[in-house]
Design a protein around this nucleic acid. Structure first.
Length: 107
DNA sequence: AGCGTGACGCAGG
DNA sequence: ACCTGCGCCACGC
């Protein structure tokens, strides 16, 4: 178990406890996982997830509330669909409403 | 070992 | 609210 694996494990642990229908930003996950301001590492950790992982990776978006561009085209669409199935609403410009950006139930 | 790249974020303008 | 530059740092070549 090297440093990177341990860090990734902490990221997954945080993402695992994001409630259904709610969303966190990469930065919020980084802070909650004890990574300080290393939001970028959260992206790497999620990128490293295998297919069919139980980790709800789709509940993580960027600081502007939008789904980040992927190297694999189409992956963004899957994330959008998963979120909408959980009741998360997007505005006309593809950004999730602020009230979903938190672990809290209400705003 | 060096260098470009990227599921990011923030401060400035 | 948008655009740009810069800091961050693991990975792959």
């Amino acid at each position: 178990m090297n440093e990177t694996e341990g860090r990734n494990a902490r990221v997954y642990a945080v993402v695992q406890r994001i409630p259904r229908g709610r969303v966190l930003t990469y930065g919020q996950v980084a802070a909650a996982a004890g990574l300080g301001a290393m939001a970028r590492q959260v992206g790497y950790a999620l990128h490293a997830l295998p297919d069919h992982s139980p980790v709800p990776w789709h509940r993580v978006v960027n600081a502007r509330g939008e789904i980040s561009r992927r190297s694999v085209p189409g992956a963004e669409l899957e994330q959008r669909i998963r979120l909408e199935l959980e009741g998360v609403k997007f505005d006309a410009r593809g950004r999730v409403r602020r009230e979903w950006l938190s672990m809290e139930k209400a705003r």
